[in-house]
Amino acid sequence: MLLRVTDIHKTYQTADGPFAVLRGIDLTLEAGETLALTGESGSGKSTLLHLIGGLDTPDAGQIVLQDQDIAALDDAARAALRRGIVGVVFQQFNLIPSLRIADNIAFQARLAGQHDAAWVKTLTDRMGLSAQLSKYPEQLSGGQQQRVAIARTLAPKPRLVLADEPTGNLDEATAAIVMDLMLELVSEAGAGLLMVTHSEALASRMSRRLHLKAGRVA
């Protein structure tokens, strides 16, 4: 079992009082499996993704990743988890604007100490970024930037890829190409994929789907 999430609760304090985003979520994911998280805005799907990525901590419940309860880890250990085992693809790309594309792609692998030049070259070629390596992110189009972000995430060969609306900022045609590439590469790497999306088309391409409604699995 790659990932097991058990009875997760999360409540945020807002100006209008406490707001329960997640009210007892359970899910599991095997290596090589892909899972779509769908639901309306505010249903808690992004929050769930952040919790699994160690970007935030749950109020109650267990998140066991490769037999490790990540809720019990401290900041440094969670950071280590994000460097090597889990990779996150954000909706807003989150590239480092001052680094060239080549450095951006290799960045996370270098952080994790898992830089594999041949694998990075494969990723670059497959993503069609070979001609862009010495450019800066601002010189690339949105679709190209997201491909850089995906390559960066896959470079350290993570066991679990988390993606939050990865094509949300792209037009449909570009989104389809980027999505194909990502699914291909994830499957080649043998990693698990957990993707937040509200696109029916995307969700249907995943092996399973989970629909969230008001913080619960519907």
Partner: peptide, 15 residues
Amino acid sequence: RPVVRTLRALGVPLR
């Protein structure tokens, strides 16, 4: 600030 946030998301520890 944004760079710092990205770095942390990519797994650089705060300390």
